[in-house]
Amino acid sequence: MPRVSAGVSLITGLGALVVIAVSIPTLVGGVLGVCLLAAGFFRQSRLLVDGGGAAFVGGLMFAGLAGMAPSLVLIAAVLTVIAWDVGRTALGIAAEVSDPSATIRIELVHAVSSIVVFTAGATIGYAVFVRTLGQGSVWALAALLAGAFALLIALGS
């Protein structure tokens, strides 16, 4: 199992767990997510890693509903997505490349680029969010979201 990717995934997962651990449901979601991620690496199972990601999403949902500050929820979400994405990459590397060959280089490149992309995405998202809500226009945000989704699905493959 590629150690760098698995390590990055578990560390960011733990980070997300710490950020959202404000109530019992969020704590359960986070702990379950970390456990499933670890089990997924141990068993080399994509299903378990995906389950870990889903548990984290559940935790995020409860955190949001519990009225957690949007910026904290966003940070937890970024950490979750990094944990899941890097974890999936670790499984892909384990399946395609056998253990003895050195995989640290591509693992590091992917982990760093994944962190950069998701952090940048979150920053842009947060900027749009603050700008629209700062003007008190939930309608604008809703319209923009709906438009973006429709365009994504329509232009998708």
Binding site: L60, M61, A63, G64, L65, G67, M68, A69, P70, V73, L74, A77, V78, V81, V117, F118, G121, A122, I124, G125, Y126, V128, F129, L133, V138, L141, A142, L145, A148, F149, L152
Partner: peptide, 15 residues
């Protein structure tokens, strides 16, 4: 009408 969940959606859309 939870703002933080809408924020997560914005993030998802950007990703």
């Amino acid at each position: 009408l939870t703002p933080s969940l809408l924020l997560l959606t914005t993030f998802g859309v950007i990703v």
